[in-house]
Design a protein around this nucleic acid. Sequence first.
DNA 1: TTGATATTTAACCATGTAGTTAAATATAGC
DNA 2: GCTATATTTAACTACATGGTTAAATATCAA
Lengths: 129, 129
Amino acid sequence: MVKYQSRTLNSTFAALADPTRRAILERLSTGDSSVSALAEPFDVSLPAISKQLRVLERAGLLVQEKDGRVRRCRLDAQPMKEAVDWIAQYRRFWEDQLESLAGYLEDLDPDDDDVSEDQKPVDSEGRDQ
Amino acid sequence: MVKYQSRTLNSTFAALADPTRRAILERLSTGDSSVSALAEPFDVSLPAISKQLRVLERAGLLVQEKDGRVRRCRLDAQPMKEAVDWIAQYRRFWEDQLESLAGYLEDLDPDDDDVSEDQKPVDSEGRDQ
DNA sequence: TTGATATTTAACCATGTAGTTAAATATAGC
DNA sequence: GCTATATTTAACTACATGGTTAAATATCAA
C-alpha cells in the first residue's frame, strides 16, 4: 500500500490541465491584471473566470490583492518549480529516446548526444481545444 | 476570444494530477510491468487501476504491449517534454523570487540583478538522478 | 443617497472522474 | 475441452468540475 505525496503537486498539475487557466497564467506572465481584464479575451461569463481564478489561487499559482473594488491578480510561479522538478526526474527517458535515435544514426556514441532542442520554446502550436 | 492550444498539454497535466497515476509512472520508471504487478501496491480494485492506465495511455505516457494474456506496460515520457517546456517558460518567475530575496539582502539594485540566470539551461537539475 | 462598476456567491445543470462489484473476454496449460 | 489466470467491460454510485443565470456585496463617483 503506497502512501501518497504532495498535495501541492495534485493541485498544481490539475490547475495546469485546463487551457483557459494556462492562458490566464500566460497573460499574467506579461503583468498583473484585474479580473475583468483577464476575463475579456474569453467567451465565458465572469463567474466562470472567477472560478478558474479560485482554482489557480488554491493551487498557489495566483495571488489576488484587493485594491478598491478591483482585484489585482498576480502570478506566483513558485508551485511550478515543484512540478517541473517532479517531471525532471523523467528527463533521461525522453532524452534516451533521442539518444537511441542519435545513437542509431551515429553508431551509438553515448557521450556525444545532442540535446539542443531543449531550449526550443514549445508554445507555438496551433489550436485544437 | 482566445483560441486554445495543445490537447496534449491538457491530457498530460490531467494525467499527472493524480497521485496514483504518478506513483504508477514512478514504478514504471524502474522498468516495465504487468497490469496486476502495477496494481499490487495499491489498495484499490484491478478495474480501478485499469482505468488509471487508460488515462495514462490516452495521455501517451504509457504504452501497453500484449504478450500472451499479460499486458506489458511501458513508460513513454515523451509527453512530459512538452509539459516541462511549457512550465519552463515561467522559470524566470520563480527564479526572480529568489533573486528579489537576494536583491533585498544586497540592497536591491534593479538593473544589476538577473539576466545571467535566464541562460541557465532548463534541465540543470534532473540529469542523472 | 443613488447609481454604476467590479467581483463573488448561490443555485442549478451536464459531464467527467474514480471507485465499486459482477460479468465477459482472452489466453495458458493440462 | 476444462479450468485457472490476466485483464477489460458493464453498470452503477458519489463527487468534482466547468459552465450557466440571477442575486448579493463592495466600492467608486456624482
